[in-house]
Design a protein around this nucleic acid. Sequence first.
DNA 1: AAGTGATTTGTAAGCTGTTACATTTTGAAA
DNA 2: TTTCAAAATGTAACAGCTTACAAATCACTT
Lengths: 350, 350
Amino acid sequence: MPEHSGTNFPTMVDVARLAGVSTATVSRYLSSPEAVKTKTRDKVALAIDSLGYTPNFGARAMAAKRTQTIGAIIPTMENAIFARGIQAFQEELIRHGYTLLVASSSYRQDIEEEQIRMLVARGADALLLIGYDRSQKTYQFLKERGVPILVAWVYQQDTPQLSIGFDNREAMAGLTREVLRLGHTRIGCISAFTDNNDRARERVVGISDAIKAFGLLPECLTVVQTTYSVESGGRALEQLMSKSEKPTVIMCGNDVLAVGALRKAKAMGFSVPRELSITGFDDIELATLTEPQITTVHVPHRKMGRLAARMIVDRLQGKPRRPSLKLKTDIRMRGTLAQAQKTPSGIGSR
Amino acid sequence: MPEHSGTNFPTMVDVARLAGVSTATVSRYLSSPEAVKTKTRDKVALAIDSLGYTPNFGARAMAAKRTQTIGAIIPTMENAIFARGIQAFQEELIRHGYTLLVASSSYRQDIEEEQIRMLVARGADALLLIGYDRSQKTYQFLKERGVPILVAWVYQQDTPQLSIGFDNREAMAGLTREVLRLGHTRIGCISAFTDNNDRARERVVGISDAIKAFGLLPECLTVVQTTYSVESGGRALEQLMSKSEKPTVIMCGNDVLAVGALRKAKAMGFSVPRELSITGFDDIELATLTEPQITTVHVPHRKMGRLAARMIVDRLQGKPRRPSLKLKTDIRMRGTLAQAQKTPSGIGSR
DNA sequence: AAGTGATTTGTAAGCTGTTACATTTTGAAA
DNA sequence: TTTCAAAATGTAACAGCTTACAAATCACTT
């Protein structure tokens, strides 16, 4: 009768016995093969192979107090905004022997908090978070548990956390300057909800900055807040364009909103960009698939993801701490932005 | 001096001591609170709360031999094909107390195999896989380790694995029947590479089926294989349309390819759908954002994700095994498919 | 051949839960 | 009150790996 019965898999003890070495040696072979003599190495490799051994993750995590797992919490998986960046992040992590665990928060702070706890509970060695906006309590929790975090998709100098991203405010201000130069004086803005979303907030502030610097009155700008979706972009546009003082340009918080706005504008019979200009943000693939293509702010998503992974890995390997990283964005002039219409402003509308 | 120093977190022993109970009781409180008396329950809850205790995932996994984790391996995260389905899958899993671990394979069998091993090594209780095509070795491995799998995005009756999905072949045949009814007799097809991709393969076969049933010759169909991307869809279209015998309709393996084909067709000066019809598959959001909107096969992604989660959870909870599930698809007639042009076929081209 | 420091390997003590089984407590019936 | 099954709780044996430290081996010197 078998000593151990049931559905048990080979363990390190089995491998050690077969190879004629101790479990310590097997463990060493697994985590730092170069510390094991070639001859021993071969014996162990053979034993592992012939038993089909795989180390037990739980046991490993418990003994080593690390999991080689990085957690990431993104606001949404459904639209492409984060997809490219996260994909690159994952690829780079894998290259360094780490695994990515992704969760999404649906842009809700309470869910994000829950997910953070979940990932920490699962032993994530570090976390990638999007944007700064979250409760002090959350930051405190992370600090207590000793879980390093990297804040991505934003860059701010004066924060305690390590971050990688771009200056949303300045990027949007840059695009606004182009808009203003083209003679637009009535600007509509479709933004995501700005509570708990620093990126959305800063983009709106960027528009204001540029307007002020250009010498126009703040009243030139009308902001509508909504959720991030094609549908709601359309509804917001409808709302903005049904006023008596119609904007000549709609600046959207991201490309998804811009696509919705564009589609609705066309459906309402506005000619884009002749009668109405539209801009986006992010430069996701979608922005080049519309007719006309969307003028937007290009963000180096893949690069950001890749560098984010490196920063985290370096951090975990105890390398000297790099400073936060600011990436450059640039404006992609495409078909939806043009000179403002010359028709007299106050007259004739409605 | 402290008995335990270092950066250690409270363990179950600490909770038990503070609450004045045994660790077994704490463990019971955590996994089946109803088995603990109200009074004890309160004591334990208080202790947990005041210590800020969180159970250690690794220890739990090791002791309980399950992780409440489900793994999923999808071909890609970058385009939206799987996003909605997986999102729904995750939502439903969370509702049942499970966590989702997602990995992607870039449509490569070797990478998928690697990811399967990784997820199994991490203790995934079950796996969601896309499509049937994988080596016997892989299936064998999964069986040996006793990890249940659910095959999604396809439905086939005569396979040993539990599956949920739709009949790709029949769905595409249905769309083809519409195409044929509109008088098209020269059909181009842009497919994903069909090795290791049953879905792509079956869709192509579906087209052939319909053509045969309609009484046309197999030569009516020209297939080009490529990777799944907007770019390559465009290149494939270029290839198909530079032949002397130009197709009057291009049937694409999915919407991403269709979008690429549509864009390139317009760029080449073909009027869609007057001179050239185009069809897609999947009905992702993108399909309604083009001009004209893409005629495609609608797949109930969210429903599939949700049901997949239920099937897996039921399975893990030992409920009676449900049979594989076949979901209905339907054709969304939109702007890119129209009557074939009446111009004589062989004459005049080139 | 002995000595020495470096390299390689072994020993054994954790790490933190779960759960089978044993024991105690509880509460209703006798 | 006593009795007894059911309910609640406790005891203790694991689970499989990592790693500090000890021991053995190796490669040179002298």
